[in-house]
Simulated assay, not measured.
Amino acid sequence: MKASFANKVVLVTGASRGIGRAVALAFAREGAQLVLAARSVEVLAQVEKEVRDLGSEVLSVPTDVTSHGAVTALVDAAMNRFGRIDVLVNNAGIGKVGGIESAAFEDDVHQTLRASLFGMINVTQRVLPILRQQRSGTIVNMSSVMGRKAFSRFGSYAIVMHAVSAFSDSLRQEAADSDIQVSVIHPALTATDLLREAEEAEMPPPFRHMTPLSSEDVARAVTKAVRCGKRRVVLPRTANMLLLGEALSPRIGDFIATALTQRPIAGLLGMSRGKTYHETILSNPSR
């Protein structure tokens, strides 16, 4: 494979499993040097080994992205080791399932905001001056299809993903004068541990029979977005129909969202073609 990112330094948060791990490995395969950040020390060490086995130089730094001190230590360690940062992938975050009338809803919003939005802001504010000084670099922010269209029972997550989308749009315009690229990724349901603890009956209705994307699908989209300068990526492509409908009218968006609760319709759109999320997660070890 062509080493598209040879000698480029890529910092990935939430790198210990799921999309973050897959993104780290994808960049490593294309020759990048990696800085890995996550809270889980032991699992992060395993990903570090996997990256090193691919022939890439790697630094792992156990980090809670909601801690200003921890993020400062992470970025300082990256600069001391490599002297630059070329790509930041803001992937760390959590997701909660539950209705708006749930007693836990407000707390779910607060927790998700802290981990998935304020953590992202924290890391970005520390890395952005470095990219400005270099007058180059890319920031990739992981959002979701629900960063453009909310589904029932996933309101707390959708609120935060909409905020990530708005943050990314503002950041892209503010950073343009320094030749800094900003990409926001909007994957549909993905086979990660994000919703492992949610019962199938608690899931948003369309999710109960959808076939999830793989983490590797999303990772390939991330590396392509950086390589090609894509500002926004929606996965799978058919999900753009939902977002187009929502842009035209909330009534159309809601109609499509309701239609997706019917497995035959989701199947026609290529979004229900195999194992469901829970079938996929239960058949694979936690990662």
Rank of each mutant, 00 (worst) to 15 (best):
S214C: 04
A239Y: 09
P212R: 11
H209F: 03
T124Y: 09
E202R: 11
G155F: 01
Q33F: 13
H186W: 09
A176D: 13
L25G: 01
L44R: 04
A166P: 01
K2C: 04
V47D: 06
R263N: 05
T276E: 03
A158M: 07
D217R: 05
N240D: 14
I185D: 06
L194Q: 13
N7K: 11
S215C: 14
I19Q: 11
P206H: 01
D179H: 15
R52A: 15
S67C: 04
D86T: 12
A247V: 00
A77G: 06
R126G: 03
A188P: 07
L36M: 05
H68T: 13
H278G: 02
E48V: 14
A150H: 06
G83Y: 10
V23D: 06
D108M: 13
Y157G: 04
M271T: 13
G99M: 09
V47H: 01
N141V: 08
R227C: 05
S215L: 10
E199V: 05
N90S: 11
L195V: 12
V184G: 00
I180P: 07
E42W: 10
V222H: 09
R126A: 11
L195Q: 03
N141I: 03
V160C: 07
V127L: 07
S56Y: 06
E42D: 14
A175E: 08
F27Q: 03
K49E: 15
F27L: 08
N7T: 09
V12R: 02
L128K: 08
L195E: 04
L235C: 05
V41S: 12
N141H: 05
I180W: 00
E106D: 13
A73Q: 13
I252P: 02
F167E: 01
I139H: 00
T238S: 15
N284R: 15
V145T: 12
R52H: 13
T63E: 01
P236S: 10
L44G: 04
S143R: 00
V61L: 08
S215R: 07
M271A: 04
L44N: 04
R231Q: 15
K2P: 12
